[in-house]
Design a protein around this nucleic acid. Structure first.
Lengths: 172, 172
DNA sequence: ATTCAAACGTTCGATTTCAAATGATTTTTT
DNA sequence: AAAAAATCATTTGAAATCGAACGTTTGAAT
């Protein structure tokens, strides 16, 4: 099976050095390329799009979520971004400091905090998002359109796999 | 074209709200699922495998790279991990504090710093890596083997796309 | 040989990140 | 209704992360 020609040089060397150990090489290959692609993507967008607006990748993502979902609870931001509530607090403080976001306690449940954009925040996201999306298009553009569709489908399936953590064990 | 059924609920709502803007929805879909999958993967491994050994995802990755590549220069760790040199310095300091790694200045070029594992570091990575790989296998296991191969291939192609940044424009 | 430029790792300041602990509020039990 | 448990967001302390600035060392140019 000539799998070598599908590997990058570094990847091949790793495989060579862990061969002999009883490991799942295909899973290693999937995971390491997933991680590497995501990090390169993040860096590209931060450097080419976000830096000039003094936004971090996380700040931008948070701004985007608030833009999409209107006034939204802190805990929902955390869930949608797959980060802790503490992280969201920290991000919102930074965004508030920059005048892009406002926080207010919910009237109906005083434990909840709602986040919404200021007009400066709305201006910012509406200005930056198209450029961000262009960066996404540059990255995805490495693939043909059928390949992009397939990649999205496979990633979606992987993501869905995380959301059924214990059910099967409980069902015993 | 019934693409809806391939979207998750949240993803669909985002698409609905940005429709009307001239954006590349497929690229958005690829990028957001890439990022989400990578973050969920990182969190899963940190919680289920690394936490009990007091290792962060980055610490583990650094340990792994040093394990594979023997004494290795700081700049090469940075490149292979797609992080800045400053980050590597910080990670090596932490790893050194925990007695897992040793640093030494290169004899032939005093600007370079070489990192290598201590015996405690080697014991650690050889103990943790199989468990880490099992976590990778759990994640990849959501897909069939042909799907895993295809996902790895597509991600590898995306990664390769980052390594030819300006050539084409220069060629004009 | 001396100066100049490039490359390297580190330091610095700011932000992001998390788990654990905390304080406030709401819901459930009793 | 009072007490207990659960649920929030925040704070705290530690680490990760980056760009920019810095000092050291090497290589190139004069």
């Amino acid at each position: 099976m000539p799998i070598q020609e599908d590997f990058s040089g570094a990847e091949l060397e790793v495989m060579r050095r862990v061969s002999g150990l009883p490991i799942d090489e295909l899973a290693l290959s999937v995971a390491s390329n997933l991680w590497r692609a995501s990090q390169l993507f993040k860096q590209k967008l931060e450097r080419e799009v976000l830096r000039e607006h003094s936004l971090s990748f996380s700040s931008f993502s948070t701004l985007f979520i608030i833009w999409i979902w209107g006034p939204i609870e802190t805990r929902e931001i955390a869930k949608s971004q797959a980060v802790s509530k503490a992280t969201v607090t920290s991000l919102l403080i930074t965004l508030e400091k920059h005048g892009l976001v406002k926080r207010k306690v919910s009237k109906t449940d005083k434990r909840l905090v709602l986040a919404e954009l200021t007009s400066a925040g709305r201006t910012m996201i509406e200005w930056v998002f198209p450029k961000f999306n262009q960066g996404e298009a540059d990255v995805a553009g490495t693939l043909t359109e059928p390949e992009q569709l397939e990649l999205a489908r496979l990633l979606r399936k992987v993501v869905a796999g995380f959301q059924i953590p214990l059910e099967q064990e409980v069902a015993v």
